[in-house]
Nucleic acid binder design. Structure first.
Lengths: 304, 304
DNA sequence: TTATAAAAATGAATAATATTCATATATGCT
DNA sequence: AGCATATATGAATATTATTCATTTTTATAA
């Protein structure tokens, strides 16, 4: 018999387009999902997915169920929000500190939906730039931090958001663009365009250039568009998240290349104080964040 | 975690207003439902039902979940109908024969919704009165029979619909109306107003009067309203299903009394040939029938 | 074509959990 | 009070979902 579990699986399947990835999203094994799908197909006597090679395609029946799933899950979430409101006072604060400037791009729409869901919770961005955002948490100046920090500290909890790739960004026609993948040595004496943050907070520098002893120059800009503008006008190259530059690449404003054969990857976490982590509106912030990210950002993969 | 199972339970709970009855509706034990409810309350940290004595009352949280449940279940059913359409050709016939004249009252709205769900299925009532409706099934003149027959015969399947009570119907002020419950002997030499069917098909006669050797007179009428009219004008008394006369009793047009201390009960089944029983639109006819009956008819109880 | 890697399917074993059974407790009614 | 009825509860059981280990399928490169 059909259960919500199946519907949750189906949406994950549609969002990821792969059984294994969907399995990660719902915190089950690939095998479990395979069995679930089989059970559903047996139950309805209908194929739900059609596989063409590795990629999977939903059949008409599958699409119909996904449509159901999305509707139902939205309604369940709405109901659960109402219950959470009933169960406790939900006025509160949520001050967010960002470690990574680019994150602001996807965070904004999420903040909007969050405000709709929890009108009584004051949602703020801790503005300006801070050397150590985790310190803000401890000092009580922020409630949650979005960043790559994940070594456990007492009183704090880290919730994984997603993993993404950092790509080298070049001007169109840049000579390095001829290579599919850039090597460490390709960066020798290059000018890097970065956000104005300490060197150790820039992955390309701390994880690639410094260990290899490669020299570089640096120039900073506050905004992502400003960085891209500098890159496009050949003042240097940048290293930015794949999802942050997608639309610029699609419009051939700049080109993007992998850094090293395995690529340069970074993980994003939401860090909060323990007390806050248990509040229903924080939990909801987490789930809506994850959902919206996986729904809108291309090329990110589930974590943990 | 919330599952559809819980939602199904919740609606049954709202419809029956009792844990034990709800349990019957979802084919589980009372204990299972009690555990389910407890689990939900633990999960949401909220009471969902409040008990005032025996009757149970839904809390705000409970009501919110019931609202969710009803919405979701409707959507699931709609999706499943679409799937059934996809899975096989759904043009077909469904010719219904009625054993009990009164059933026509509740069957009509059900036929309407069925026609909406399965526009391609020809739905007909086998008109007129037939001595042995089961024979119509075997002769292929009807596809399903709604009646009280339930002894198993090869090639046929019986699906329980519900159990209902047959009440004695009297004119207001009738001297037997002074008694709360009528005894067999009260019927001695009474004039019975019945549908024009053989004696053995009238429960009051075959199950009560005949075994006790009580003599009676008989007069027939085709329509329920005609029978009631005759009863109200003191031409005799009738024995009719509780749900069929509810509104007339409420308007004091007639009065109704229990027959015997335990009452006179009858069971209703949907009987069909095996081949038809597996068709999706037959299954849907069954479930919508049960749902609508339990939703609209007062005083009926689940069967089996 | 063959070799190899990645993804999914499958069957058996296991873990998880829903349900029942056997009670206890609470409530309503005479 | 005492009985009948309804629900709650804990332990035992049954069911079922999930994992683990493995095979099959497909894609890619040599």
């Amino acid at each position: 018999m059909l259960e919500l579990r199946h519907l949750r699986t189906l949406t994950a399947l549609r969002e990821t387009g792969s059984v294994s990835l969907a399995a990660k999203r719902v915190h089950l094994t690939q095998s479990a999902l395979s069995h679930q799908i089989k059970a559903l197909q047996d139950y309805y006597q209908l194929p739900l997915i059609q596989r063409q090679g590795h990629a999977i395609q939903l059949t008409d029946a599958g699409k119909r169920l996904v449509r159901l799933a999305e509707k139902v899950i939205m309604e369940v979430q709405a109901a659960e929000r109402d219950l959470a409101r009933l169960s406790q006072r939900t006025t509160g604060n949520l001050r967010i500190a960002l470690e990574c400037h680019t994150c602001f791009d996807w965070l904004m729409p999420i903040m909007d939906t969050f405000r709709e869901h929890w009108p009584e919770v004051e949602l703020d961005l801790v503005s300006g730039f801070h050397a150590d955002p985790i310190k803000l948490l401890k000092q009580g100046e922020a409630d949650i931090v979005i960043g790559s920090e994940n070594k456990l500290q007492r009183g704090l909890v880290h919730h994984p958001l997603f993993r993404f790739e950092i790509l080298a960004v070049l001007a169109p026609g840049h000579e390095l663009g001829k290579k599919r993948v850039l090597d460490v040595v390709d960066f020798t004496n290059i000018t890097l365009i970065t956000y104005p943050v300490p060197e150790e907070r820039i992955d390309l520098i701390s994880k690639v250039l410094m260990p290899a002893g490669i020299p570089w120059q640096r120039r900073t800009a506050e905004l992502t568009v400003a960085i891209l503008q500098l890159v496009a006008s050949r003042r240097g190259i940048a290293a930015l998240p794949n999802w942050g530059i997608k639309s610029y690449v699609d419009h051939d404003y700049i080109i993007a290349r992998r850094i090293g054969v395995n690529g340069l990857w970074s993980d994003l976490f939401v860090t909060a104080r323990k007390e806050i982590a248990s509040l229903p509106y924080f939990q909801d912030f987490l789930t809506t964040s994850r959902n919206q990210c996986f729904a809108t950002l291309e090329g990110i993969i589930p974590l943990e």
